[in-house]
Design a protein around this nucleic acid. Structure first.
Lengths: 275, 275
DNA sequence: GAGTGGTCTAGACCACTGT
DNA sequence: CAGTGGTCTAGACCACTCC
């Protein structure tokens, strides 16, 4: 007689994964309750919970309390494509107000409906701490404009992205409109805002990290378990070589993907096939 | 009298986080054992385990069995900078064999020692499935060269990255050397390999996702709990507009960061300050 | 009131390592 | 051998929603 040496919770896990793979459990379906599964397998509820936790932590199921545990529907991903988006924003900064009004910034991201997006912004003057100073290349204690943005999908109630943007105050204080968050959403975005104080952005550099969200972030952005967070640190440099803006952008990785295109310089004629 | 309404495991969690924040528990230190913590707080071991799980899942502690639970030392991150790296690789494809030999590909990534890196490659002819066909823009069932790469840090024994690369076979079968993995590591990398069959890469597009690793990936790449996985889907397009290579690259996010620079076109003279 | 998952207890046995 | 975390049990009470 062959015994089954797998731990009890592993047997439940394998069983559920088989049912999902076989299509017996489809997205939206409720997983049998913990009590039922315990009885089915002749084990205690604690062990069943171990199996369910693995499925939750890998984003396969979602607990909706107190209804039950359900197979998750994979969310649609919003594509963020900085390599073309940043240039598009720069081109737009030269257009008239009417032309800029006709298209927004976040609507450029595909996969989502404009009408479904809710946008909020808050401005605040503050003093740069060690971290922000390092990123902006200014002295600690320098006055900066801190702008906090949040984009939410109304339908799903989930946050698409959230960002903190920092600009040295002396760059923007020539235009009082730039210090007032009632002017948001600003048609044309940051690059147009900067253009009103004579700043032309020359290049933008993105640093990308991924990590597990903190408990606070999970709750405030309604991120399900098993979903990492993209952290994009965006640095804008103007044609004089100054850092004119730094943003830290948080994107839940189950609803975002990033895309960068890198064009390469052409070889000169007849140059290929180095030996 | 004020009662403490937090769940028991939450109290242990908060306590441990305070001790870490205060510096009482530093990287490398052992967290008190589950039994000790249970006694300290007058609760059962099961509740203590709940607190420890949160810390493990957010990458703060690491369990080394059967020694104990320890505060993790944040690993050094390897910077991957595709926007300059791809151009650098292209430039290198034109150099002589000696010049190409003098510098490797992965050594361009900063943060790691060349001598510490172990590299392995395996080639295999195969038939493209639906997914790969879609990515390469070829018909399902087309013959492709599949190349599997793995880079490991010898010292830490952990995998830095792993990738699967696919090239339509008709592109490379003109040069038998390209079908033989004994020629790896190939000085100059993929772009030089392609140059030997007359292919000049014109642009490369990276699609970036992040997700929680599967159990298999966690074990084979020695990824600690609480660490997401970067998935980079890299598509190379040649000057004729053909897709000449597709790779899927896995990078554990605790030891990687990505960096992309986007140069912007200059405005013409006197063009700023659109109204 | 019935059913769900969240939390908790007080025990238990196990595999593994280091002394 | 002692000490660690991994697994497990058989109960229990709770807050919440739906009917």
């Amino acid at each position: 007689m062959t015994r089954d040496y797998r731990p009890a919770y592993q047997r439940v896990l394998d069983d559920l994964q088989e049912r999902i793979a076989a299509g017996d459990l489809k997205p939206g379906d409720m997983v049998p309750s913990e009590g039922e599964l315990a009885e089915e397998h002749g084990i205690s509820r604690g062990s069943v919970r171990g199996a369910i936790r693995v499925l939750r932590d890998t984003g396969i199921v979602e607990v909706i309390r107190p209804k039950g545990t359900f197979i998750r529907t994979p969310p649609t991903r919003t594509v963020r494509e900085p390599s073309s988006r940043y240039q598009w924003e720069k081109d737009r900064a030269l257009l008239s107000r009417e032309e800029r009004l006709s298209t927004g910034a976040s609507e450029k991201e595909s996969g989502l409906d404009t009408a479904d997006l809710e946008f909020s912004a808050k401005y605040e003057k503050t003093i740069s701490d060690e971290y922000i100073s390092g990123r902006l290349g200014v002295e600690e204690g320098t006055q900066v404009l801190k702008r906090t943005y949040s984009t939410t999908s109304i339908k799903s109630g989930s946050v698409i992205g959230r960002s903190n943007s920092y600009i040295p105050l002396d760059i923007v204080d020539g235009n009082p409109d730039l210090l007032d968050d009632r002017n948001e959403p600003w048609p044309g975005g940051t690059q147009h805002q900067l253009s009103t104080v004579g700043v032309e952005v020359d290049s933008i550099s993105d640093r990308i990290l991924a990590r597990v969200p903190t408990v606070d972030e999970r709750e405030s952005m309604k991120i399900p378990e098993g979903t990492p967070l993209f952290v994009i640190e965006k640095t804008s440099i103007d044609i004089a070589g100054r850092i004119v803006e730094f943003s830290s952008i948080l994107l839940p990785a189950d609803r975002a993907e990033l895309k960068y295109s890198i064009p390469l310089k052409r070889w000169k004629k007849g140059q290929h096939a180095g030996n």
